[in-house]
Design a protein around this nucleic acid. Structure first.
Lengths: 203, 203
DNA sequence: GTCCTTATTAACTGAATGTTCAATTTAAAT
DNA sequence: ATTTAAATTGAACATTCAGTTAATAAGGAC
C-alpha cells in the first residue's frame, strides 16, 4: 500500500503528477488511470480527492495560475529610481525565472481547454486582467516620471503582454539554442523601444 | 446509408468535421465515434480512409497548415512602391482575413499536440520557417529601399511574428468587442514603430 | 488498547475508446 | 446485364475510460 499521507500533501502531489502527465502526453493522454500508475496508487484514490475529472482540471488550473500569482507578488521591483525600476521590470519579464515558472507545453494545453470550458476561461481572464492591472500601474508611474512616452498605460500593458506571450510561443520554434539569448534580447529591446518612442501616428 | 462520395470529397469532409469537433470539444473530445456521429456515417468509414487516428491527426495538421500556405501565396502585395507595399503588408498581417483564416481554438490544440508529437512539431517548424523567410525577404527589400531602419531582417521577422502571435493570443482574452479594433490598431502601429525606429541600444 | 476519522485499496460497472475484418451496397465500366 | 472496384456498413474485439460502492488499513486521540 502506498505510504499514507494526508489530503494536504496528497492532493498537490496528484495535481503535480497530473500536470507532468499533460506535459508528457497531452490532455488527451492524461487519464486518471495513467496518473495513478505513474504515482503507484490506486485510481480510486484520485476519485476520492477530486470526485470528478472536471473538478481535477479546475483545481489543476488553479494550481498553475497560482504559480503566476506568486511570480507577480514576488516581483516587487526593488528600485525606487524610475529608470532603474523600468529596466529591472523588463529584466524580470524577459528573465529566466519568469520563463521557466510553468511549462509552456502545459500552458498551451490549458489555453486550448479554455476554449471549450468556461470555468477555465474565466480563470485565465482573471489572471490576465490582474497581470494587466499590475503592468499598467507600473507604466502609469513611469509616465508620471517622464521616462516613457506612451499615451495610455492600459493599451501599453496589452502590447507588452502580447509581445511577452509571442516570445514564449516562438522561443520553442525558432531556437536554435545559440540564438535563444539573442532572441530574448531582441524582444526585450523592442519592448523598451516601444515604451520610449510611444505609438507614432502612421495615418 | 450515407450518400456515396469518392475519397477526394470524403476525406476532406472528414477532416473538416474532425477540425470542427476539436474546436467545439477539444482534442480530448474529438473521438472517431463522435466525428462519425456528427457526420451520420459509420466509424469504420473513417478508419477506412485514415487507418489510424495518428494518421488522421497528421493529415489534419497538413490540412490546417495548407490554409496558411494559401494565405502566404495569396498575399502578393500589389504595390511596387516600397512605402505603400510596407503598409499594405502590415494591413494584411493584422487584417481580418488573416485572423479568421483558421480557428484560433484549433490552432492552440495543434500547438499543444506538437509538444508530444514530433511529426506535428516538425510540420509547425516548417511552416514557421517558411513564414519567417517570406517576411525577412520583404524586410530586406524595405531596408534596401531605406524605408525601415532595422539591422537584421531575420531578427526583425521574428519580432514581428511574435507580436502577431501575441495579438492572436490576447484578442480572445482582452476583448471587449468595442476595444478589438483599437487593440488591433495599437499592435499594428507598434509594429510599424519598431520597423521605423529599429532596435535602439539600451546598454 | 479502543474508538474514530480518513487514507487507501478491491472489485466492479457501463460506456466509450481505437481497431479489425468480413459483408453489403453503390456506381461506373464493359 | 455482368463485372469490378470502391464506398459504406455491421458486428465484434480487447482495452481503457471515468466513476461507484464497499471493504480494509493506518494513525491520532483518549
Amino acid at each position: 500500500m502506498a505510504s499514507r499521507k494526508n489530503a494536504e500533501l496528497r492532493k498537490p502531489e496528484i495535481l503535480k503528477n497530473f500536470y507532468e502527465t499533460i506535459v508528457e502526453q497531452g490532455i488527451e493522454g492524461a487519464s486518471i488511470g495513467r496518473i495513478a500508475k505513474r504515482m503507484n496508487i490506486h485510481p480510486s484514490l484520485i476519485m476520492h480527492y477530486f470526485s470528478t475529472k472536471e473538478n481535477m482540471i479546475i483545481e489543476l488550473v488553479d494550481y498553475i495560475i497560482n504559480k503566476y500569482w506568486l511570480l507577480l507578488k514576488n516581483i516587487q521591483v526593488g528600485h525606487a529610481d524610475p529608470h532603474a525600476r523600468l529596466h529591472e521590470l523588463m529584466d524580470v519579464l524577459w528573465g529566466d525565472e519568469w520563463y521557466r515558472a510553468t511549462d509552456i507545453s502545459a500552458d498551451f494545453s490549458v489555453i486550448a481547454i479554455s476554449f471549450h470550458n468556461s470555468e477555465v476561461s474565466k480563470r485565465l481572464k482573471h489572471l490576465y486582467s490582474g497581470f494587466k492591472r499590475y503592468l499598467s500601474d507600473e507604466f502609469k508611474s513611469f509616465m508620471d516620471a517622464g521616462i516613457i512616452s506612451v499615451q495610455d498605460p492600459v493599451h501599453t500593458a496589452e502590447i507588452i503582454m502580447s509581445m511577452l506571450e509571442g516570445y514564449r510561443h516562438f522561443n520553442n520554434f525558432f531556437v536554435d539554442n545559440a540564438r535563444a539569448e539573442q532572441y530574448r534580447q531582441d524582444m526585450k529591446r523592442s519592448a523598451l523601444t516601444l515604451l520610449q518612442h510611444g505609438l507614432d501616428d502612421h495615418a
